[in-house]
């Protein structure tokens, strides 16, 4: 059976290439149809917010790439409730459907995967 991998994305989309590079790991694994999950944690939750203006920072907006993940067979998308709350965000702030997990849910999630990469 294929080994599963959880990618934990912790950086805001404007904080350098980490958000892009976490997503690239997910997309590469999706091409092999591997069991993957993507968790947005801490500042990583800013990647999910609506109406981003990446062009004003001369960057590319990742939102469309994130929204396309289910088309690549990746529909295990998670976000930490505590990270949203700390940043005054909630479900209505998000540009795509993700499963919101409380802290206990995070532990369970991380334990479920064979490998974990945090970026």
């Amino acid at each position: 059976m294929a080994r599963s991998m959880l990618i934990i994305s912790r950086q805001a989309p404007w904080a350098g290439p980490s958000a892009r590079e976490a997503l690239d790991i997910v997309l590469a694994g999706g091409a092999f149809e591997l069991p993957l999950g993507l968790l947005f944690l801490d500042d990583g939750v800013f990647q999910l917010t609506k109406a981003q203006q990446a062009a004003s920072l001369e960057q590319k907006d990742l939102t469309a790439n994130l929204q396309a993940l289910p088309l690549f067979g990746i529909d295990s998308l998670f976000v930490a409730r505590s990270s949203l709350t700390e940043r005054n965000l909630d479900e209505s702030s998000l540009a795509l459907p993700v499963e919101i997990l409380d802290d206990a849910g995070l532990s369970t999630l991380i334990n479920r995967y064979d490998h974990v990469i945090t970026i």
């Binding site: 080994r3 991998m5 790991i25 694994g29 092999f32 990469i117």
Partner: peptide, 18 residues
């Protein structure tokens, strides 16, 4: 090489240590 090499290796490994 590409990121596929990371996934391919992770499939063979007991532990991925980052």
């Amino acid at each position: 090489s590409g990121l596929g090499q990371l996934h391919e290796a992770a499939q063979q490994a007991d532990r991925l240590v980052c």
